[in-house]
Design a protein around this nucleic acid. Sequence first.
DNA 1: CGATAAACGAGACGGTACGTCTGGTCTTGTG
DNA 2: CACAAGACCAGACGTACCGTCTCGTTTATCG
Lengths: 199, 199, 199, 199
Amino acid sequence: MVERSEASRRAVLNATLKLLGVTGSGPGTNVQKLTIEAIAREAGVSKATIYRWWTSKAEVVFEAFVSDYLSHTSVREDLPALDALRDHVHAVVERYAGQEGRIVAQMIAEGQYDQTVLDQFMNGFWRGRREAVVALIERGQVEGSIRADADPALIATLVYAPIYQRLLLRDAPLDAEFADEIVTLALAGAGEVTSRHAL
Amino acid sequence: MVERSEASRRAVLNATLKLLGVTGSGPGTNVQKLTIEAIAREAGVSKATIYRWWTSKAEVVFEAFVSDYLSHTSVREDLPALDALRDHVHAVVERYAGQEGRIVAQMIAEGQYDQTVLDQFMNGFWRGRREAVVALIERGQVEGSIRADADPALIATLVYAPIYQRLLLRDAPLDAEFADEIVTLALAGAGEVTSRHAL
Amino acid sequence: MVERSEASRRAVLNATLKLLGVTGSGPGTNVQKLTIEAIAREAGVSKATIYRWWTSKAEVVFEAFVSDYLSHTSVREDLPALDALRDHVHAVVERYAGQEGRIVAQMIAEGQYDQTVLDQFMNGFWRGRREAVVALIERGQVEGSIRADADPALIATLVYAPIYQRLLLRDAPLDAEFADEIVTLALAGAGEVTSRHAL
Amino acid sequence: MVERSEASRRAVLNATLKLLGVTGSGPGTNVQKLTIEAIAREAGVSKATIYRWWTSKAEVVFEAFVSDYLSHTSVREDLPALDALRDHVHAVVERYAGQEGRIVAQMIAEGQYDQTVLDQFMNGFWRGRREAVVALIERGQVEGSIRADADPALIATLVYAPIYQRLLLRDAPLDAEFADEIVTLALAGAGEVTSRHAL
DNA sequence: CGATAAACGAGACGGTACGTCTGGTCTTGTG
DNA sequence: CACAAGACCAGACGTACCGTCTCGTTTATCG
């Protein structure tokens, strides 16, 4: 009868973002150290309300992060495919270098312990981004800037895998230089037909 | 002066492996759900003893796993570089498909919350494997099967990143087919000089 | 405008009796463990409806119990006073030995925490019974079987106090033998004139 | 190895007494409204410590009250039995009129919901007092001031039952006048041989 | 006979306490 | 003096009820 309070929902999500350090000033907490009690306290909401609507802490974090904060790094349609790809990779790398990256990393970490968390992350976040990149590569093939006989999915993997590796293993910084390398690498083999002709 | 009890150390490490399901029969626990208390109980050792010698649960796991269980998938010296690389990737992928992969994934997950854990993992485990692959690629360049103008480090990234992505994101199975794809992909651009000549 | 729903009232009272184990089969609950929520659930009634008409759980229990279940153990008018007293005490003791006794005990218990509950119990239940006994004793005095110089109120206390003590302290069973003892005791001093003459 | 901390035990018991209003200034709480959390908070003790050593709130209250606060209203040996009885009843009634009475009443109330609480009360508190009174009555019989053919246990009941009734039902005040009445009543029948001779 | 106003079911909500659990520290013997 | 045994404080867990508060939705008079 009485429908869900949007105010409470927002309070929970905002409190979660605040505690994670996404918004506000403080340094923020781990997802792991983030507690439901703290969210409830910060949000001025009852614990029961959180448990009523979310089944796990990770679900709250995911909703807070993905649906309310994360900008779906878009792919530009107005650029040639190669340029759009380069632009997209730069944008992703730049974002992942900051707080957003830390939270994505922690969601993946949570997913190692809870398959449903990983599923949610993959379906609600990762899949969409990847498909946008695959579509972009296919556009590149139509445009003739990417070899038509290369598998777009594999190229997408070549683009994304190093980003996630660096995000998670932190073996080197996520910076613009790295973004350039990635695109170059991914297209070195399957890549730019014209430049290959120049070889 | 009573020096550190090697018996206690072994008891702790063995208990850890048992509880993680690495040895013994049971299904094993998460690293996350693994508790110091349970280790102490299983090992017949006092909690204080564990805290005295290890600073975190992850450190115990790492020591138990890396120094006592993990086989350092070696690189074969008796094969041509390309074959050795292919062999190595197959071996890694096969191992990561099992329990070993789950624990590596969980150590990386823990590392997202604790930099020292990640450092330990990178220095004690990952770095060595990667350097072996880099060396292998350099051997391939000397042997002439890999283009000399390619950066061995980048190729190593092209090899490993997709493996870790699949290990952590579980978007597709870690199997022999995948191992083949990786090698092919990684060498597509920077790869086999001979095949490029055929273009 | 719309008057109180008798159907809801009955549903609440019946649900209360059922949950207390007074009616139905099950073992029943404590008054303490009985919850408004459970009553509402069982009765198919909104919590608000209960709170609208009753101020406390104890009030619901009292109404359910007293006005709908409790038989007002009556005093027989057709017997000589002494026989009627004996009959009454036996009846009370017998009833208190069962479920009725447990609930009376629990209402008194609730009354220790809430004066209004105790008031309600005293006014709505206890007072009436006690006055009936006092009247009976006065009849005995008129009939000459009880000494006229004894205070009827004190004798009533001598009759009832041991019953309530046993009900609440459970130091010995509430049985027929006990009922006999009580009457004998209460009348030993102030009691049967004839027997005293025999002294 | 490590034995129970007496400091923690005392802290818990003292906090309990303070919260119940037995010591300190405030108005105090019900036993019912007294919470384990509040005790732990007040005592500066972990909840787990309380649950480790006591199985229920009532047990804590009992131990706090009986073993540390309640003075075991003693029976004077230097007076003739009848005078000692009168003295004892006055003392008990006086104590029960205050905070001590409220807590005894609440322990009995708790006992209506939990047999172990009642057992503990009966064995640890009530039994001892009653036996002292029975012994006193027997002394009176030896001294010749109480009829030898009366059952001391029944007389003890006649003495105590009205006190507990008034304590629990609060139908009339627990005062000195009442104490006098009780003794007179109890001894009216089985009582003072000399006065009976005067009849 | 249709408007209106209370009573009602449903149940969301902020709270509070429950009893359990684990983490990490500290204490007290034992070998 | 390293160790086991384990008591301890701290505080989060997820659950259960509390009593309050909208919400529509009956339902019974009254204009």
